[in-house]
Design a protein around this nucleic acid. Structure first.
Lengths: 108, 108
DNA sequence: CGATCCCATATCCAAATGGTTATACGTCAA
DNA sequence: TTGACGTATAACCATTTGGATATGGGATCG
């Protein structure tokens, strides 16, 4: 089963808890798991698991420092999302252009 | 439990089959369920269910004509996605600006 | 060294999800 | 009106998912 490269990204962002974690990392910058757990309404293991998913999607990066792990958002990972959206808009525009072109030719 | 307005949108786009349907509607324009089912690698009821989810997310529109239903993409529904992405980028930029500002003040 | 702290992993569970087949329902044709 | 067609819904099932608690394992402190 082939899975397109967008799949991990979309799936990672689908969960509200995960989006919230990522949003907080974007808003407030690098944070430890403990800091992220406070404020998330789920247990620490749940937070760790979510961070794992985000990491696999390339949305976050982890940095180990002593016994704590600092996570930070990787904004660049959102690029495929922007590309995909642009592509959809492009398809739409393309069809529009084609229609416009057709009407123009009919007008002559 | 409050669910942010982005939730339906992200969740709808999380499934590959659903994304594929939406992509085809963007690329090729309005199509009947039968046309969409041919090409989707799942049964017709599965397609109908996916279209229902896309519709609830505002991503598609349905038009009944006789005994067939035509679906078309609603590109505008992607706006919240763009907004969200912009917001994340904005947060990042904001933190960057703040850091820049801080460094500037320390320089004095 | 022993205790504690921070985080990750293991295990388990309920609920959600995506799929199927069977069927109901409106529409068109004969 | 009867039957075929196009789509939606119903009922069901396997798998995935997101959560919890329990535990492991390295780092730090006493």
């Amino acid at each position: 089963m082939i899975s397109d490269p967008h799949d991990n990204l979309f799936r990672a962002l689908a969960d509200p808890t995960r989006r919230s974690l990522f949003e907080r990392l974007c808003r407030d910058g690098e944070q430890t798991v403990a800091a992220l757990t406070a404020g998330a309404h789920v247990s620490q293991p749940a937070v760790s698991k979510h961070l794992g998913v985000l990491k696999q999607a390339g949305l976050v990066r982890d940095r180990h420092e002593g016994r704590q792990t600092h996570y930070s958002a990787q904004l660049g990972a959102l690029a495929p999302l922007v590309d995909w959206t642009s592509q959809m808009a492009g398809f739409w525009q393309s069809r529009f252009d084609h229609l416009e072109d057709l009407l123009k030719r009919m007008d002559q």
